[in-house]
Design a protein around this nucleic acid. Structure first.
Lengths: 150, 150
DNA sequence: TATTGTTATACTCTATAACTATA
DNA sequence: TATAGTTATAGAGTATAACAATA
């Protein structure tokens, strides 16, 4: 019958925030990785770069905490960044268990380049949204994040 | 309480829609799966259930198309639903290559139960957002999805 | 005893390519 | 030749548990 030829509908799924969030997030991820392909920097790795840039001398556990990354998964992320020469890792003088991090010059350049790429990527993908609408969106997303942040 | 608790900042990452989308989406997913744990129905599987419910007689490829799921990945999803007795699969009378699907009575009951659980889950997680804000959020997310939908 | 970072591992989710049977 | 569904497989992404060094 008709359903076989028309575009299918989502049903009640269409009313759920979670469904549309998952689809929109996936779409943005695909576009992000396309925009960053030449740099080899993935979403999560860029996040680590940004946190180190904003908090020089931060340690591994603190980076993971603010970004919601498990300690075990931080290891390879940090490894990528040190292997690429983007961050320097030194033992903390205050706690010899911990490593503290800073961007290298190369890392700062890669970060700046990444920022520019991501701004273009978001401008392209969100070109139908006004600046005010983007701010509204970010504000709503932050409130979801904050609402039950244990 | 003297120390360790200046929380690190995100840096420029904080201004990106994509970052907050990814975090908020991940959070909603975790809560979704907790809410649905007793049913064993995952996010994607519930989506398939909803599309079949709304489009009885739809075939596998069409379900995947509307939900953005690859043909290859539809196979096990459909398998889960037929194994659970939630959907009936019959060869299409019009195209013997294709299967068409309908909810069984059990499937309709599971779908209704799932809907109720998800509504509670979203009401709980989004309790700090007004109804109008949720609608705004969904509308913005849909526009991201639609903007470059090839 | 608790914490920082590490290793090993497993599970989910999604993507690609090659196959079959129908069209 | 093209399409619907299938199989096999690989790659991210994330989660848990146990361990060493240090606090």
């Amino acid at each position: 019958m008709a359903a076989a030829n028309d575009t299918a509908t989502l049903g009640p799924l269409d009313s759920f925030v979670g469904y549309h969030m998952r689809r929109a997030s996936a779409r943005m991820s695909v576009d992000f990785h396309a925009a960053m392909a030449e740099t080899g920097i993935r979403q999560v790795v860029f996040g680590v770069l940004s946190v180190i840039a904003a908090n020089p001398g931060i340690n591994q556990g603190q980076i993971g905490k603010v970004l919601g990354i498990q300690r075990a998964n931080m290891v390879s992320l940090i490894g990528e960044l040190t292997d690429a020469g983007y961050v320097s890792r030194t033992t903390s003088p205050e706690d010899r268990r911990a490593f503290v991090f800073q961007l290298t010059d190369r890392g700062a350049a890669a970060f700046a380049d990444g920022l520019a790429r991501i701004r273009l990527h978001e401008d392209r993908l969100l070109r139908d949204l006004s600046v005010g609408e983007r701010e509204t969106l970010v504000a709503l997303l932050k409130r979801i994040q904050a609402s039950g942040a244990d």
